[in-house]
């Protein structure tokens, strides 16, 4: 019986992998994955811009001025 488990497990693994591969291919073809790195910048705004740390221990913000980018 052991071989049956492995056979089934293998088939399941194949199915899962292929579904994933197929979805990925589809997404790429649709262009869903282009421009990715730009999307990662969408969390920054003028108020909390890229390049500046936006959280400190209270009262200690001054000690981290070095990390703030001069613009």
């Amino acid at each position: 019986m052991e071989w049956l488990f492995y056979l089934i497990a293998f088939i399941v693994a194949l199915c899962i992998t292929f579904t994933g591969a197929w979805a990925l291919r589809w997404a790429v073809r649709q262009g869903q994955l282009s421009n990715l790195e730009e999307q990662s910048r969408s969390i920054f705004t003028e108020e909390e811009p890229e390049g500046r740390q936006s959280d400190f221990f209270p009262g200690r913000g001054g000690s981290s001025r070095r990390s703030r980018r001069q613009r």
């Binding site: 990715l36 999307q39 990662s40 910048r41 969390i43 890229e50 390049g51 740390q53 936006s54 959280d55």
Partner: peptide
């Protein structure tokens, strides 16, 4: 990324991680 003020290392990996 937000607190550090720099974007996530690889956005591509994050999507892969999601799926």
């Amino acid at each position: 990324p937000k607190v550090l003020g720099k974007p996530i290392h690889s956005y591509y990996l994050s999507i892969l991680g999601f799926w």
